[in-house]
Amino acid sequence: MRPMPLEVDLVLPGRGAALSGRRVVFTLSRDSGILGLCGPSGSGKTTLLRVMAGLCPKASGVVRVDGVSWLDSNLGTDLPLERRPVAYLPQGVSLFPHMNVRENLVFASRLAESAGFGKRPPSAGRLSGFRSILRGGSLPGWAQEVVELFGVSRLLDKRSGELSGGQAARIALARCFLRSARLYLLDEPFAGVDPEGRAGLGRILAGLLARRKAMALLVTHTPDELCPLAFGMVRLLPEEDGDESPGLPVQQGQMSGTGAKGLLERSGRWE
C-alpha cells in the first residue's frame, strides 16, 4: 500500500509557559496541491507550520511525509530543518535588508543549487568557483523562470525598502519557490496583495505545485478566496478559555492530557 503523502497528529505547545496540549490531526491523501489552514488569531496556525518545518523543539506527535517520519516523539525522531524536504515562508517576511531584490534571489538560488536543485552547469572542481565569481550577481536560467512566473522580474534592481507590501510578498514567494521541496508551508503568502493579484498568484501557485508534484499547506484568513484552489481546509478552533485563570503559570505536567481540548475538524472536498 502506498504511504499517505502527509499525516499529521500533533500536540501543539502553547505560547510561553502556558503549555496547553492542543491536538491537531489531519491527513492528506493527494499527492500534490494546496491544503488550506485557517482559524482565528492565536489558534496555533503559525506554531503548526513551525513544528512541521522543524523549528519548534517542544513539539510532540507525528509528522509523516510519504511514509517518512519527520517527527515521531514516540520513537524519538525529530529531523532537523536541514534534512526535511520542506520550504517555509514565514508570515510578513522581509527580504534581507542589505541586499537588493536580485541579490536576495541569487542568494536563495545558490543555496538551492548547492542542495542539488536546478540545472547546474557541469562543474569541474576548482573552475566552478571561479565561474560563479565571473557570473557575479546574475540569476541562473532556472531561477529566472521562477522569477518571471511570479511577475517580479521588473523589480530586480530595487532595494528591499523601496517595495510595496504586495511586491515584497511576491518576491518572498518567488524566493521560497526557488527551493525545491516536497512540502511548502506558506504563512499568509498573499498578505498585502490586491484581490485580483491574489487570484492570479493562487493559480500560479497551483500550477507550480502540480508540476513539481509538491504539497502546500497555506495559511489564510479568507478561506472563501482559497476555495477554487484548495482541495481541503483544516480549521483550527479558537483556544477555549476556562479552567486556567489567566496570569497563573501552568505547570508543565498538565499538558500530558492530550486532546483534552480537541480542535480537529477536517472538511471534505471543497467544490
Partner: peptide, 20 residues
Amino acid sequence: RTLEMARILGAPPFTVFRKI
C-alpha cells in the same frame, strides 16, 4: 527571524555568518 530565514533557505551556519 532574519537569521532563521537564511537557515530556512538552506544556508549552513558559516554562510549565514559570511553573507548575512
